[in-house]
Nucleic acid binder design. Structure first.
Lengths: 301, 301
DNA sequence: TAAAAATACTCCATAGGTATTTTAT
DNA sequence: ATAAAATACCTATGGAGTATTTTTA
């Protein structure tokens, strides 16, 4: 039962006149007669009771009509939607992100993207970098927002931002309000570290920074969320080495100081499958880059 | 977007291999390549990312796949159902009936019919004879069960049963337990008549019976349901002239007597549109005739 | 008798086949 | 180097057109 026959059937059922229905279909009357006969043979059912004066639907025709209409409408709808998905007007994106990206413009980027693409559903999944790469390769994720990694061959990546680590210090601490701090000054401080389990990349980088400066940091607290890190600093439980973006959280009783000289940086990368290319990924990437750059331009507003 | 292309698309989406999909579709590989390309042009979307080593769905393809499956399934379902409707296996019947038909085997006929056609929905509408004819002609009814009428040209009819009128008399009444009664004996009795509004045919016939015997019946009660007629008789409010089938109700304290000689009969006719013929109508007619005949054979069991 | 559906036939578009080329790993 | 998709080309089915016949109200 081809779509064409259903289209002809619906036209005839609505006009109840072969000539008029044929005109509406932009064909001549004989092929419509033939087509209807063919459809009737295919379903082994007479669909119309007809003579030279009138055309009426049979019970079987009455049964088919609403179904044919539904099928035709679903068909054109599916075609239109598919076009829209290809155009990037409509669709579904699954985006992974590391927790710190929330303080680096990602929420703003999402808001802008949703405004541009109201028909697109975006699902956000908080995962660490390694997990995101895995999910990407299994095509369970369309885009990842990760810390610096070596992306595999079939994964593209784009650096969104790179920012220095700062020291977060509680007010009243001996180092508080210092403009610059040497990493070595933190030697005997209680360090609040982000969980190695949740972000091994970050954890390892801090560790290596200290080691290369000649000391092993004393780890007191290991927490699973950046807000917890800042909270503990705020409560005077120690100092923390955090990406600069964390300044924007506005946590009370916490001051931030730069390191003397060049230090390792915290990176935010977007990663996605090289093929097949989902046009929405490119579009979202644009929003991300814009939002991230905006954040960088107004570092403390 | 023809059904054929959707079939090919689903096959390829499931096999993810042109050769295997083509085999499954019983065609060769090249026409499948051409067909997929054609579909992609129609929806202006690449549906598969493909090279000589692998075939994968794009986001647009992922979007289309479930919809294509649904459309194909609805299509074959609609075709099958339409065939069934034409065969009389499945469908929908709207049946009108006059109240008295409930005591003439119609419920039994329906039960038998439903057993034979579990996929058929039967809607019953209690209407008087004239209303049924109107509804039939507007195709809002498939079958009517009416009292004797002159059916119009485009309406077929079949006499289901014809039975004498009896006199229903309360126990203890002077005429009670009489085997035969002359109509004239009812001259001064209080007659309980069925509503002229609900059944003008019946009402008029009783009236004419009396008139032709030389008297005008005294009308005391005019009720809208046969059970009400019998109830009033049972309560000693009068006598009634009722179709013989009413004996089967088993109303207590009511006896039934025949009229002397030939009297007018109460008929039950089935009526239906001559065209288009719904096969279910013929089938239900068969059940009705059987059930009605059964009733006639066992008049008092 | 007249309006409309069905039939007869012709033509051409296109679905499908075979042979071959291109492509990507 | 090889497996697999794309392309080229041919054939034949069948969809659509015109002319005509049949049907029935």
């Amino acid at each position: 039962m081809e779509t064409r026959l259903l289209r002809y059937f619906v036209a005839l059922a609505e006009e109840l006149h072969f000539g008029r229905a044929a005109t509406r279909l932009s064909i001549s009357q004989p092929p419509l007669s033939v087509a209807i006969k063919q459809l009737e043979e295919q379903v082994q059912a007479q669909l119309f009771e007809r003579n030279s004066k009138e055309v009426r639907l049979t019970a079987a025709g009455e049964h088919l009509l609403p179904r044919a209409r539904q099928i035709l409408s679903l068909t054109s709808q599916a075609a239109q939607e598919t076009t829209d998905v290809a155009r990037g007007v409509r669709g579904h994106l699954r985006v992974g992100f590391v927790g710190s990206s929330l303080y680096r413009g990602v929420p703003q980027a999402l808001e802008a993207f949703q405004k541009q693409h109201p028909q697109v559903r975006v699902d956000m999944l908080e995962l660490n970098s390694a997990e995101q790469l895995q999910e990407l390769q299994q095509a369970r994720l369309d885009l990842g927002l990760v810390h610096s990694v070596q992306p595999p061959e079939d994964i593209s990546s784009q650096m969104l931002m790179e920012e220095p680590f700062l020291v977060a210090i509680p007010e009243g601490h001996r180092l508080s309000s210092r403009k610059e701090i040497d990493l070595l000054e933190l030697k005997d401080e209680r360090l609040i570290l982000f969980s190695a389990q949740v972000s091994p990349v970050y954890h390892q980088r801090i560790y290596q920074m200290c080691q290369s400066r000649g000391f092993t940091p004393e780890i007191r607290h290991e927490v699973r969320h950046w807000l917890s890190v800042l909270s503990l600093v705020s409560l005077g439980q120690g100092v923390a080495i955090v990406p600069a973006a964390l300044q924007r959280v506005g946590m009370p009783r916490v001051t931030f100081s730069q390191f003397v000289g060049d230090q390792a940086t915290s990176e935010l990368l977007a990663v996605w499958r090289r093929k097949p290319t989902n046009p929405l990924v490119q579009s979202l990437l644009g929003c991300l880059q814009t939002a991230v750059d905006d954040i960088a331009v107004h570092p403390l507003d």
